[in-house]
Computed example of a mutant assay.
Amino acid sequence: MPTPASAPTLTTARLTLTGHAATDLEDCAAMWTDPRVYTMIGGQPRPREDVWIRLLRSIGQWTLFGYGSWIARDTATGALIGELGLIEARRAIEPSIDAAPEMGWTLTGAAQGQGYASEALAAILAWTDARIPATTCIIDPTNAPSIRLAERLGYRLRTTGTYRDAPILIFDRRARAAEPAAIAAR
């Protein structure tokens, strides 16, 4: 089992990515009530209580697994951009995706379509590729922007599965050799 860790801070040209903190609750709770956010991720707004549990899970994953997810904020303004990174969700998906950590990304409605997800995930994958041999992700079959993003990042469709009685696309990605990246980890 990995040594307990906390999220490293990653930076990109426009973003600062940090581990979750209790102070992120209100911004995250607001994000999860926006239909532009939840429509393709469960189809329902998330109650503040569920967002709090999600935040705690994100913190705990770093302790248990040595990896997890990040809060992305605009470096200049401090505005929440989204939550991105690795999760150990242990979802009841057929077929199982438990062989590799799951990569996920959720952006605020205002941040969508501006290249933030690509920018943040490039930094996260540079960090991840040095530590984890493979990741997987799941995407709603109607979420064309996320499918395109996953494919640009090197994810390849493995199969269509079932999650909560609905079809879900399952993608896999092997770690890439270290490449010079425009990120810094502090």
Rank of each mutant, 00 (worst) to 15 (best):
G19D: 06
G19F: 02
A22H: 14
T23Q: 13
L25D: 04
L25G: 00
E26C: 10
D27T: 05
D27P: 02
D27Q: 11
C28V: 15
M31N: 07
W32A: 10
W32K: 00
T33P: 04
D34Q: 08
P35G: 08
R36H: 12
V37D: 00
V37K: 04
V37F: 00
V37E: 01
Y38S: 05
Y38T: 01
T39C: 01
T39G: 04
I41L: 15
I41C: 13
G42T: 04
G43E: 01
R46N: 10
P47K: 06
P47T: 05
P47D: 08
W52C: 01
R54K: 11
R54G: 09
L55M: 02
L56R: 11
L56F: 07
L56E: 13
I59G: 13
I59Y: 08
G60N: 03
W62D: 10
F65N: 05
G66S: 06
G66H: 05
G68T: 09
W70F: 08
W70T: 01
I71D: 02
A72R: 10
A72P: 02
D74V: 09
D74L: 15
A76N: 01
T77I: 09
T77S: 14
L80M: 08
L80G: 01
I81Q: 06
L84Q: 03
L86C: 09
L86S: 03
I87S: 09
E88S: 09
A89G: 09
A89P: 00
A89W: 03
R90H: 14
R90T: 12
R91D: 15
R91H: 12
R91S: 12
A92D: 14
I93L: 07
P95N: 11
D98M: 06
D98Q: 07
D98Y: 03
A99K: 11
A100R: 00
P101D: 15
G104S: 13
W105N: 07
W105K: 14
L107N: 03
L107A: 11
T108F: 12
A110D: 14
A110M: 06
A111E: 01
Q112C: 14
Q114W: 02
Q114F: 11
Y116H: 15
Y116M: 11
A117F: 06
A117M: 02
L121M: 15
L121W: 14
L121N: 05
L121D: 04
A122F: 01
A123T: 00
A123S: 10
A123Y: 01
I124H: 04
I124M: 05
I124Y: 05
A126V: 05
T128F: 01
D129L: 04
A130I: 06
A130D: 15
R131T: 13
R131V: 14
I132N: 04
P133V: 01
P133N: 14
A134Y: 12
A134C: 13
A134T: 02
T136N: 07
C137M: 13
C137F: 02
I138E: 02
I138L: 07
I139H: 02
I139L: 00
D140V: 03
P141K: 14
